[in-house]
Design a binder for these strands. Structure first.
Lengths: 353, 353
DNA sequence: CAACTGCGAAAAATCGATTTACTCATTTCT
DNA sequence: AGAAATGAGTAAATCGATTTTTCGCAGTTG
């Protein structure tokens, strides 16, 4: 079974050619499915390929073309379920079209984002799926524009004048959260978020506020927004509660905020939903096994990934026209962490079911 | 600025050469830092590079060498914190050495694992970091061996006769968990795991059992192991409890098992640690914000990634010698989900704190 | 003064596939 | 029958770098 030479040197198209007694060009044609090859020769080529275990070298194959069969993906991080699922999806979709996905993490840094982009440009990727750290106005998008790269922006973006964008419909989802909380009687709600990521956070905040005020003009909405990091947010939140503020519900605009809110509740000995209600943007597997299960807005990862790749490949294949901004609807899962204010026995044990 | 031509065609080494009035070979030498270039010429080359914004095409650059500056990484999934952090680390380490990391998810399938490996072989990657779905004896490792690939196996492996391995010291960590549970007085413990991933699960189980029996020969250890999937495990666990079994502590050998255990506790209205104690292998961010915080074994992701890459690059650079099996120590975080049996009010509402 | 040493740089080969241009045979058409 | 079209295949150019070989020329040496 030809183990020996496998370890030494891989068969090249020339090895196949000489073995089949034809030229390399003919081998290439057979592989490409060109019909102008004598069936007899084609068969000999196929046999040679089989015997030598020949496989095309994608790197050599891509050398000549301007756009290579590589898609770059840049995510702010890999540690969360959301981006993990996103990369998995994107990889699978790229693969389906015969492309290789090269994913990189910007680790929430715009500087790194641009560096990675430059590296991907060096690789002459056919296209890039960029989930920017902040929004569509960062240096990364500018770099892509300046260098004529093909790309799609996802997640923390609204719309752009150069690239297609795909993201969750944060505003609509937040509006629904607002409607539900108001419906349950909440009139003092705290919204927690990480501020300058702007794009989505603003959409979520506005969507929530507008609908809440519309349905209950007397509602009081407090907002605690931190600049960039989680720890400052924790500190601000602690201060907020230390002042004696006592909202009946908290809406966190992103996953880590939900974690922070939960840990602050714990510190103070508050329980959901009796002492306070909680809804978070972004779902996670653990949220349904804790007690209580945490209500969450579920982002449509598959849809976002699917439409992003669809748009990207359309552009790669030369589609013209103005960029399109796409919003995918979210699902709001109201779990046990949300109740009506003052309905449960305050402080103390929750004896449910 | 030079925006126009950037959009059109990237500068190649020949463009730089002609602009500097030298040959392409000289440009290559300047970039490689070869000293046998007249300073005057070197400067002109540098200027030309600057003016044209020239950057080496990594693909063309790698064409000639047998091993390309690409490292492949294959993980069972991207959705968990553990593998997310792992990929982030590996990427960062590869980058430091001027390599590009191409990560792929086998989605817990051995067939896919081998396919991906074949693709990476086509890419002529310099090396592969493989976190196999089951263990070191799967088809993927065999493929690597048969094709003379360079690689390191991590996570769900113990040791191998062909490749270096790096994983968490599951046995030692499990022994410590055993010691702590026994120390707190537990004498009826349930161990939950996903069976045929073998390598690590077996190590964890054995490590736990050996130490537990050593410290308390009268301890009763039940084991619920499912074959491959999570749902069967849930069913088995449900059956187990339905039979009236009432261990005082549960040790889950992997993250999803912890989730499943928690959700079963919820179904039955049991609370940790009053009704039952829980420790899980693998830590996650949410575990410290739930009430109670879940005790967990923390795997040393950075160490595993670091030593894996160290070993890999040593092999890439030609290091000989028998493969080494490395075990990295874990930390055991005993949080509130672990207590002493019978110390809290059984059944019903947990009015804790 | 011929032969030798070496430096610096250019020319050419190489990596592996694709693609263009071109060569012979056959057919087919007028 | 002679011209044009088609078929089947090959040699060579190309992609963008790296590496090996070769070469010119200046300065030494015998």
């Amino acid at each position: 079974m030809a183990h020996r030479q496998d370890q030494q040197r891989r068969a090249s198209i020339h090895d196949v050619a000489s073995r089949a007694g034809v030229s390399a060009a003919t081998v290439s044609k057979v592989m490409a499915g060109v019909t102008t090859v004598k069936p007899e020769n084609a068969q000999r080529v196929l046999d040679a390929i089989e015997q030598l275990g020949y496989r095309v070298d994608p790197l050599a194959s891509d050398m000549r073309r301007a756009k290579r069969r590589i898609i770059g993906a840049i995510m702010p991080e890999f540690e969360s379920e959301f981006f993990g699922q996103m990369v998995t999806q994107l990889e699978s979709l790229a693969e389906q079209r015969g492309y290789t996905l090269v994913a990189a993490s910007s680790r929430e840094s715009e500087a790194r984002e641009t560096e990675i982009l430059a590296r991907m440009h060096d690789w002459r990727v056919a296209g890039v799926v960029l989930a920017p750290v902040r929004n569509e106005h960062g240096p990364a998008a500018a770099f892509m524009k300046a260098n004529g790269m093909t790309g799609v922006l996802i997640d923390r973006v609204l719309s752009d004048d150069a690239f297609d964008t795909v993201s969750a419909d944060s505003a609509a989802a937040s509006a629904e959260v607002a409607a539900q909380l108001i419906g349950k009687g909440h009139r003092h709600i705290l919204v927690v978020g990480l501020g300058e990521q702007a794009a989505t956070v603003r959409a979520r905040l506005d969507g929530f506020r507008t609908t809440a005020l519309h349905l209950a003009p007397d509602v009081r909405i407090d907002v605690v927004l931190a600049e960039t990091d989680v720890e400052p947010l924790r500190a601000q939140l602690r201060d907020y509660f230390a002042k004696g503020e006592r909202p009946t519900a908290v809406y966190s605009l992103f996953l880590k905020g939900t974690l922070v809110a939960l840990s602050e509740f714990r510190r103070r000995g508050w329980h959901c939903p009796n002492d306070i209600s909680l809804v978070g943007f972004d779902d996670a597997e653990w949220m349904q096994v804790t007690w209580p299960a945490i209500a969450a807005v579920v982002q449509p990862v598959r849809q976002i990934a699917g439409h992003a790749m669809e748009a990207l490949f359309a552009r790669i294949e030369g589609e013209e026209g103005p960029p399109r901004a796409r919003l995918e609807p979210c699902r709001v899962l109201m779990r046990e962490s949300v109740g009506s204010p003052g309905s449960g026995p305050h402080s103390g044990g929750g004896n449910r079911q």
